[in-house]
Amino acid sequence: MPQVEIKIGGRSFEVACQEGEEQFLMTAAAMLDVEASSLSTQIGRMPESRMLLMAGLLLADRTAGLEDKVREAEGRLAQAQAQLEAAGSGDVAPDRVEVEVPVVPAQTIEALQAIAAEAEALAETVEAKAG
């Protein structure tokens, strides 16, 4: 199992991953690092677990917003498809149908979901140690 060294919030971590997933891990770590670095700039030095938890929660929040946008786009797409089907059956005479659908790459969604899962695991660990 490959070991990958990642940096998050100026701290180094050695993380194991499945063969071939190294780039996925590096991408996810880079996203988490952006959030952690931003937090460190705003708040200052904080315990590692708190930094990772807060950065993960920020990414989870962003993921939830993106998922909402994807659902909204899917709804608009379904409406447009219905219009096209109706137009194809002769019920409606279309002049032109335009649909703008934002696309979120599947890899990005998977990375954010993985980060959200890690944040939840970290939160449970922090709660267990605090309680």
Rank of each mutant, 00 (worst) to 15 (best):
Q23A: 07
K69C: 01
M54Y: 02
G20M: 06
A86P: 00
E85Q: 14
Q81S: 14
G20H: 10
R11D: 01
S12Q: 03
T41D: 04
I8G: 02
R96A: 06
A78K: 13
R50E: 09
T27R: 14
E22N: 02
D61E: 14
T41S: 14
A36E: 02
A78I: 07
L84D: 04
V4P: 08
I8N: 02
T41N: 08
R45Y: 01
S49R: 04
P105R: 12
E35I: 10
L57W: 01
V34W: 00
V15Y: 02
G75S: 15
G9I: 12
A73V: 04
L52Q: 08
L52F: 03
I43A: 13
R62S: 09
Q42G: 03
S12W: 00
E19I: 08
L39M: 06
S40A: 05
E67W: 00
A60C: 06
L53S: 10
Q81A: 15
L57G: 11
S37E: 12
G65H: 06
L59R: 12
R45C: 01
Q18A: 15
R62Q: 08
A80V: 10
A93D: 04
E74T: 09
A106E: 09
L39Y: 06
A64Q: 11
E48K: 09
G56Q: 06
P47V: 08
V70E: 08
L57P: 00
M26C: 02
A64V: 11
E48I: 11
E110G: 09
G10K: 06
D61V: 07
S89G: 03
T41Q: 07
T27S: 09
M54T: 12
V34F: 01
R11P: 01
G90S: 13
S37F: 01
V104E: 13
M31P: 01
V97W: 03
L84W: 01
R76F: 12
L57C: 09
D33Q: 08
I109A: 14
L32W: 11
G44H: 09
L53D: 06
V99W: 03
E19A: 08
E48W: 00
S37R: 15
S40F: 02
A30C: 06
A30G: 14
S37N: 11
E100K: 12
E48Y: 00
E100M: 09
D91M: 04
D91F: 00
V99Y: 03
D91Q: 09
G9V: 10
C17G: 10
A73C: 06
A29L: 06
D68S: 04
A30L: 08
G75Q: 15
S37D: 07
V103T: 13
L57R: 14
S89V: 11
E48P: 01
Q79T: 07
L66M: 13
P102M: 04
L59S: 06
E22R: 04
A86I: 03
M51R: 05
Q83S: 03
L77K: 15
I6C: 02
E48M: 06
P47Y: 00
L52G: 07
A82K: 11
A93R: 10
K69G: 02
